[in-house]
Structures are given as C-alpha cells and as structure tokens.
Design a protein around this nucleic acid. Structure first.
Length: 564
RNA sequence: CGGGGUGUAGCGCAGUCCGGUAGCGCACCUGCUUUGGGAGCAGGGUGUCGGAGGUUCAAAUCCUCUCACCCCGACCA
C-alpha cells in the first residue's frame, strides 16, 4: 500500500477530549474518529487491526469446535419477554418500534436470540453438545460512555453460547472456551489476568473474567501473590482480622451526638478508630427494606449483599424509607434494637467489642455495643468489599489491588434461559431434557484499546506483530527521480514476495516520516535512503528496539520473512 | 440523574470580563529551495463563532432558552 494514496490522517497534537493513552493514540494514529459520544468510526488502518483480532478470535473459536452464525441486531420483544428480561434489563437496552408498533431491542447481548434459534435446531441428545457464536455489533445505552472505545454505546463483541446435556458436559464446554480464550489473548500479544467473577443472581460456581491490568481499568482486582487467588472485587472474599480493641465489655449507653452522622464525624467525635463502628445502611431489596451492617472501616459490597438477600434488584433506600423504618433521620440507624426488617451482618461484626452504633433516634448513638449481648446476629454473611492488604481467603497472606480492563468473560449460565424459554431435547430413553448453558464474550474493540494501552511508548503505538495493521513499514528517503524509482522497485520486490507492506512514498522530510512510523507502530521499519544509494545498505529497525541493522538488498526478503 | 467544564477554520487554541464587523499555530493549495528524526521562503483558500430568541445603531462578546461534547459522582445482565 502506498501511503501517498492511503487515508491516514495522523495528528501531531493530542485530541482535546481524550484522557487515556489508548484513546489518544488511536485517534492520533488515524485508527478511529469519533462520530458522537460513545460511537466511533474505524478508518482503514484501524479496521485492519480490528480484522486481525477478529481473525484470531474466529480461528480459535473454530478450533474449539464452535459454529459461527450471524444473528440479526434487532430482536423481537417477545423473545425477551420469554426470558423476562424485557422487563428487567432496564434503560441500558435500546428499544425501538416499527411502523406497526411492534417492539424490538437493538441487541445488547444475544442469549435470548441464540436460545430461541437453537431450540428449533436441536431435538436430540445426539445434537449436543453444541457451541454457537457470532462476531457482531452490540448496542448498550451506557449512562456514561468513556475512554474511547473502552466503553462505548456500540461495539463489536464475539459472543458464544454452549448447550450441554448436563453439568459435566457444561464444564467441558466451559473449559474448552477457557482454553480458547487464553490462546486468543496470548496470540493478540496481550497479558491477561483471569479472575474469579461474580455470577450474579444465578449463583453457579464458575465465572471468570479476563482482565488486562491497567490504571484506566474500571474493574478492581484482588490478587494474592502467594497462592494465586485472583478475583474481581465484586466477588473477592477475604479473611476477617481479629478485633484488636479492648476485651472487657462496657455498659451499653446512649450518647448525644448532635449532627454527627458520617463515620468520619463519629471517629472524630468519639476519638476512636472506624472499625469500632457498626455502619448500618437501609436498602430496598426488590422494593422491600432491608438493613446491612458492616464495620465502619468497610464498604458494603452490593453484589455480595444481593446474593445474600437473594434479590434481583437492590438500591439504597430513599431518606423517607429510612426515616419510616428506623424512626430517625438518615445517619442514626443501628441494630440495637434493629428495625423489624431483614438484617444482614457482615462477618466482621461479631468481632467488635465495645463498639458504637446509631440508636435509631435523632442525634443519639450507642457506645459500649457488644454483639450477642446487645443484639443477635441472626443472619451473617460476607457482604463487605475486600481491599488492599486484606488477608487472602485461601492462604491468609495479604492481597494486592490492581485495576483492570475486562476484555473477556466466561460464565456458566445454568438453566437461566433454557428453562423459561423451553429448550428441550430427547435423551437416550426418549425423555425430555433441558440443556444447560454457558456464555462466553470477548469485547473486540476493547481488546484493541487494551493492546494499545499495554503496548505504547512516548512516541506512539508498538503493535504486537499478530495484530499489526501492516507487517512492514517501508520508508523511502530519496532526493531524485532515479532514487524514488529505486525505492519503488524495492517496494515492488517486497509486495511480490507477499509481504504486507505500507510504503511511505510521500514527498515529506525524513523526520516527518519517521515520526509517523513511530506513531502508527508497525513492528518492522525498512528504510531505503542515503545508506542504500551510497553503500547499498538497507536498514531494518524494529519498532520495539532502538538500533537498526543493515542488510544488503539480496538478503532483504529473507530477513523480513524471519521477522514477520 | 446531580456537580463542574467546554463549544470560534480539518486539528489544537486566543479573542468573551470591558460590544465596534474574527485571529494564531499546525494542516491544506501554488511556486521555488530543501530531504536521515515533525524543513525554509513567498503567495493563497478556509468560518451558519453549537443553535434559537432577545437587548442594541452595532453581538463571538451582554441576557434568556436550548443542543452537543468532556470530566467527577450516582447508577450499571
């Protein structure tokens, strides 16, 4: 490809609205252009990268025995009503009507569509196991799209769904996908961290997310350096530290605490540490009030709480509800005696001695609070978020926190869709059996961004060769028509040898061309200039290395074949 | 949805406070000179100043409404 005829609008300056490096570099290198908030167009160079990644994903999925489909983006509302998600999905799903008033979703995910299709395609145990997939656009009405293509309203996803006769089969399908995912990310030149993830309301034991460690990641990961435990904060368990406070039980007494409401205020007021307080928060679980109690040094983990309450929706109760159930303004709730609503105590609460908590009265707290004596721990669960240095749940050593970009997710769905949507096959005995499902997603655009995030330097992108838009970047530095013709000839030689080469034949200064080459980051740069015209030396420089090597023209093709 | 910010040439920005008929750098076009790390000189084109309404002799600038975009937060199968 001749650069003089290519559309490659590189920018010298950073776009003003890009805050993360992958976004800046992808715009500056002419890979993408923003169309609107959360919507990006891929320019030819960017589309090449996207296609390389798609090819790798497809190759590994096919190798794993999955079958590629192409589903419509519009999904009839009836299908979503079968699973119930038409009502539960919420505003993130784009919903549209046709001229006859028929309702559709603009697919945010395709469990329903695939389940609905597959149920008509399978009828016997002989048809299972089967894994189906597609690589297609997804639409999600994100509240706040950000970070370029990392979180956007429209994105390309590889989504796969497995159907098996039983849990053992599901586990095999799941493991096959797990293996394929590791291979895919490895081939993309990405270092990923597989972590245990929340499985949502379905329970189920297995769910893993593939994370790319990055400061701009939106996920929080808890990692144990000694035993290898790795989990998303949504899911991460941790060992509770023994309570370090005084042992003898003080008397329970009321203390006037006018306008002292937050844990920070209370810590100052009582002159003690946050772990002595029982933070009591009122939620609405499926619309009904419930209270969660954790120590004041902890944050409530709403995913864990949701699981423990077994509810499908969970939100902070509005002030009016708090006042109604506790009889006090927000800031004075507590379990002594607790309001007559379900109460869940975190595992850390029972360790507290001589603690403090709200008295369910305006401007009053209790001191000398002791679990067991002053209130019963009727329901105890792990409902707090693990943080840096918390003990690993497996080995007890302190864990570390890192941020990550989620590029893939594999997940055992169980019967969540196959049961309500009535998927059945006949087994060996002619009995009707509902298949068990798994689902497996990879964010393609996000993978591009993660690669750029992980493979860049001050001058631009450094593509791993497997996903680079071109294999070789040929820079010609010629002063005369004869010299240009000579570089053209070398370009022809490379093309004829089947090398995927981008040829910078523009009439621009060497510095300009080198800067562009560094920015767009093609792994191998070949320079034909002074060295060639004077001494016959062609220069090969790898993007990730500092110094070039020289080769003679006869050896060029052979050398390039080694490198690409 | 709450808070903050920004909309002026393809991109990055100044001009807005204090109203007087729009500017800088890069990019782009023409010519000449240049060519190993974002070349020089000369000439040139480029704007519904986000939109609508209002005030005024006069609005990028003041007022009202509105839209878009960015950041933080809330929320998020």
């Amino acid at each position: 490809m001749r650069l003089s005829r290519y559309i490659l609008p590189t920018l010298k300056e950073d776009p003003s609205d890009a805050v993360v490096s992958s976004h800046r570099l992808m715009i500056r290198a002419g890979l993408i252009r923003k169309e609107s908030a959360g919507m990006y167009a891929y320019l030819p160079l960017g589309f090449r990268v996207l296609r390389k990644i798609i090819d790798i994903v497809r190759d590994e999925m096919d190798r794993a025995g999955a079958h590629e489909f192409l589903m419509p983006e519009l999904t009839n509302a009836d299908l979503w009503k079968e699973s119930g998600r038409w009502f539960s999905y919420g505003p993130e799903m784009f919903r549209i009507k046709d001229r006859n008033g028929m309702e559709y979703s603009l697919g945010p995910t395709h469990e329903e569509a695939f389940t609905g299709l597959v149920r008509g395609l399978i009828s016997s145990y002989r048809d299972l196991p089967v894994t189906v997939y597609q690589i297609n656009t997804k639409f999600r009405d994100e509240m706040r799209p950000r970070y370029g293509v990392i979180r956007s309203k429209e994105f390309i996803m590889k989504d796969a769904y497995s159907f098996d006769m039983d849990e053992k089969g599901l586990d095999e399908s799941y493991q096959a996908m797990r293996k394929a995912y590791r291979k895919i990310f490895e081939r993309c030149g990405l270092e990923t961290i597989p972590v245990e993830a929340d499985t949502g309301a379905m329970g189920g034991s297995d769910s893993e997310e593939f994370m790319v460690a990055s400061e701009v990641g939106e996920e929080v990961l808890l990692l144990c350096g000694s035993c290898g435990y790795r989990a998303n904060q949504e899911k991460a368990e941790f060992g509770r530290k023994p309570f370090a406070g005084p042992a003898p039980a003080e008397k329970l007494s009321e203390v006037d605490t006018p306008d002292v409401k937050t844990i920070d205020d209370l810590v100052k007021f009582f002159g003690t540490t946050p772990d002595r307080f029982l933070k009591s928060i009122i939620y609405l679980a499926d619309g009904k009030p419930a209270m969660a109690v954790v120590t004041g040094d902890r944050e409530i983990n709403e995913n864990k709480l949701k699981r423990s309450l077994g509810c499908s929706s969970l939100e902070l109760a509005p002030d009016s509800v708090v006042e109604e159930v506790t009889g006090a303004p927000v800031g004075f709730a507590g379990p002594v005696p607790g309001p007559s609503i379900p109460v869940v105590f975190d595992l850390s609460v029972k360790e507290v001695r001589n603690g403090y908590t709200g008295a369910n009265k305006k401007d009053v707290h209790y001191s000398g609070v002791n679990p067991g004596r002053d209130f019963e721990i009727a329901k105890e669960a792990d409902i707090a978020s693990a943080v840096e240095m918390d003990p690993c749940p497996r080995c007890g050593k302190p864990m570390n926190v890192r941020k990550g970009i989620e590029v893939g997710h594999i997940f055992k769905l169980g019967y969540k869709y196959s049961r309500p949507m009535n998927v059945t096959v006949l087994d060996e005995n002619g009995a009707s059996v509902t298949p068990i499902m798994g689902c497996y997603g990879i964010g393609i655009n996000r993978t591009v961004a993660a690669i750029v995030e992980q493979n860049g330097d001050g001058r631009g992108i450094v593509w791993p060769k497997s996903v680079a838009p071109f294999s070789v970047h040929l820079v010609g530095i010629s002063k005369t028509a004869e010299e240009s013709a000579a570089v053209d000839r070398i370009y022809g030689m490379m093309s004829d040898a089947g090398i995927d080469v981008l040829y910078d034949d523009r009439n621009a200064s060497p510095g300009f061309k080198f800067a562009d080459a560094d920015l767009i980051g093609i792994p191998v740069r070949v320079t034909v200039g002074k060295g060639y015209f004077q001494d016959g030396d062609i220069e090969i420089k790898l993007r990730k290395e500092k110094d070039p090597v020289k080769v003679r023209e006869e050896a060029l093709i052979g050398k390039l074949r080694e490198l690409v």
